[in-house]
Nucleic acid binder design. Structure first.
Length: 574
RNA sequence: GGGGCUGUAGCUCAGCUGGAUAGAGCAUCGGUUUCCUAAACCGGUGGCCGGAGGUUCGAACCCUCUCAGCCCCA
């Protein structure tokens, strides 16, 4: 926000306020300055520490401020001794649905993008104390699935695959086994997702929405993984027909009507340009009907805040499904049907449209089509460039922007991929700590496995084990206004608010994490080249080293937090 | 025909609520290693922010029009 020469941070929107108040911005700034100096400086919300050392009016009406040494010191102490996190979304219950790939083939690179984006966002929301439930919708009924079974059946009986069936090579592995293809493909998808750190709380099968088994010969796919504790009354011996219930409800509430032999949803009520068909005149249901029923169950299971991440090819769906879900929620509140949630204002549905990934190979675009079998598998990419680079690469750009992905380039650029730059920063800090241990600056007998502010684990890093002995170190950094060390500390302090900001925005721009990581790593590498942390000549040097280690420990802690939010590892050596 | 996304350095992209001299990485040119990891650091070159109007103290950002690319629906 502020460049270093403008102090630690600056306030710029005073000019806008002054317009409304019809006051001279400079005068207003001067008044605010007096207030800041008397009020804010004397009562920071932590202890009684003066927050500001300096504040001044600059330019046409900016206020530039500088933190006091004491404030920075206490902030550093907190960052080191407490868990990182925020309470900005405390009490929020959010159900996220993403990936939801059809179980008709392996995941492609586009799915990888939604997966990485979704899981990063989920971690960011959890970081802000929201309760997040991650779900994958398994589209296990319908024409595409029938085609899958027909194609496999043809392969098994050595007959030609139907023209409009699936021709991908991956299906040929079913020739010599009797596995259920759908279940098997789904399992493979899960395995792939696991490699990039994506875990779902639930795989919701579309077939569970209706009673009539869609495909009697494959009963094993009917096993419902849905957590019954969360699904309210769904645990009775007879499975309720959610879809029928939902459609009946809509009819009874006059949200749906019959016309021309079809059943229509009054989506125009909510501002759609026309009503949409739920059940065609031939009796078959539209995807839309199933989607409404699915979203209905999300609400009924007690999740009032919904986030859907859809591919750009589904953007036509956004409006109608938002409308349908809102109307459903209104009904649920109106009828006082059992809801595990409390307030109506908790309801929100946010549908994030992720643009597609354009895949190139040596400058030539590769078209993705699952049916012909010509697609870029996520699995293949992970194997070629590794899970860390995959996650980072897929996170780097705004989700609303098409992502250009050249496989050849990604392969070649292994060492130039920015993820290594950040990881290297983390590993380098470890090297400094190892050196400090060798030099006797850190005391081996004081290393501990009970680290404040971190979850219990058997595998604390050296840095983490050293935290307790660093907490007592006084801050002796030369934190001149524009020093790299000061900028680095401010950057680390910024991490939590960076995450808060992206979770509060509708666009949920997780690529900001990448930017923050790269900036932080850059500042660290700069500092590393500016000075030597471990000198070990005099007592003074030793104290200096300890104070620097304290700063570096915070940097390592936040770097690791940022990396793991993206599903990227934070190695200790490279 | 209707709708969505995008247009910023040679390439790939950031740019947070309209704010101070538009930023990174790669590429390119030149420097830095008796010292904690050179997978690093420092410096140079490179810009009509697609174009035109408008809003205002101020616009890459907001509004209108327009051009180009990608996608969805009919």
């Amino acid at each position: 926000m502020a460049s270093p020469q403008h102090g630690d941070f600056s306030y710029a929107s005073l000019l806008e306020i002054s317009k409304k108040l019809k006051r001279n911005p400079k005068e207003l700034a001067a008044d605010l300055l007096v207030f800041l100096k008397t009020e804010a400086c004397s009562s920071s919300h932590e202890k009684q520490v003066a927050m500001l050392a300096h504040a001044e009016v600059a330019g046409p009406g900016f206020i530039n401020m500088q933190f006091s040494q004491e404030f920075l010191n206490s902030k550093l102490h907190r960052l080191l001794s407490l868990p990182l996190g925020s309470t900005s979304l405390k009490g929020k219950k959010i159900l996220m649905e993403y990936v939801s790939a059809n179980p008709t083939g392996p995941l492609h690179i586009g799915h990888g993008r939604w997966a990485v984006f979704g899981s990063s966002l989920a971690r960011a929301l959890s970081f802000c104390s929201a309760k997040v439930y991650q779900e994958f919708y398994v589209n296990d009924t319908g024409k595409q699935i029938d085609k899958l079974y027909e194609s496999v059946a043809a392969i098994r009986s050595s007959k030609p695959i139907p023209e409009d069936g699936y021709h991908g090579e991956y299906l040929h592995s079913f020739k010599n086994n009797t596995e259920d293809p759908l279940q098997s493909i789904l399992n493979e998808q899960k395995e792939t997702l696991k490699k990039i750190g994506v875990h779902f709380d639930n795989f919701f099968h579309e077939s569970s929405l209706r009673t009539a088994p869609h495909r009697p010969q494959s009963k094993n796919i009917q096993e419902i993984e849905e957590n019954t504790a969360l699904s309210g009354s769904a645990s009775s011996s007879e499975k309720p027909d959610t879809l029928k219930h939902c459609l009946d409800l809509m009819e009874s509430k006059n949200l749906a009507y019959h016309h021309d032999g079809a059943l229509w949803f009054r989506s125009s009520l909510g501002g759609d340009d026309k009503d949409r068909v739920l059940r065609k005149s031939d009796g078959s249901l539209t995807y839309f009907a199933l989607d409404i029923a699915y979203h209905f169950t999300k609400l009924k299971r007690g999740w009032p805040s919904l986030i859907d991440i859809l591919g750009a090819d589904h953007h036509g769906y956004v409006k109608r499904i938002s409308i349908a879900t809102s109307l459903m929620y209104k009904y649920l509140i109106a009828s006082k049907e059992q809801l595990q949630t409390s307030q109506a204002e908790d309801f929100s549905i946010s549908i994030i449209i992720g643009q597609l990934v354009k895949v190139f190979r040596g400058g030539k675009e590769v078209r993705m089509s699952k049916r012909s079998g010509d697609f870029i598998a996520l699995e293949e990419t992970i194997q070629e460039i590794g899970p860390d680079a995959t996650c980072y690469f897929l996170s780097r750009q705004k989700i609303s922007n098409s992502l250009y992905f050249d496989l050849e380039q990604a392969k070649q650029k292994n060492l130039e991929n920015p993820v290594y730059y950040v990881q290297y920063g983390h590993a380098r800090i470890h090297a400094v700590f190892r050196k400090a241990l060798d030099a006797g600056i850190l005391q081996e007998n004081l290393l501990t496995n009970t680290v404040p502010g971190l979850p219990a684990t058997q595998e604390y890093t050296l840095i983490e084990q050293a935290i307790p002995q660093l907490l007592d170190t006084p801050l002796m950094l030369s934190l001149e206004p524009t020093s790299t060390a000061r900028r680095l500390l401010l950057q680390a302090m910024q991490f939590s608010s960076e995450i808060e900001q992206l979770t509060s925005s509708v666009h949920a721009e997780t690529h900001h994490i990448c930017r923050w990581l790269a900036e932080t790593a850059s500042l660290f590498h700069k500092l590393y080249n500016e000075q030597i942390f471990i000198k070990n000549k005099t007592t003074e040097d030793k104290e200096y080293s300890l104070s620097m280690l304290r700063l570096l420990a915070v940097v390592a802690k936040t770097l690791k937090a940022g990396l793991s939010m993206l599903g990227v590892s934070a190695p200790n050596t490279m």
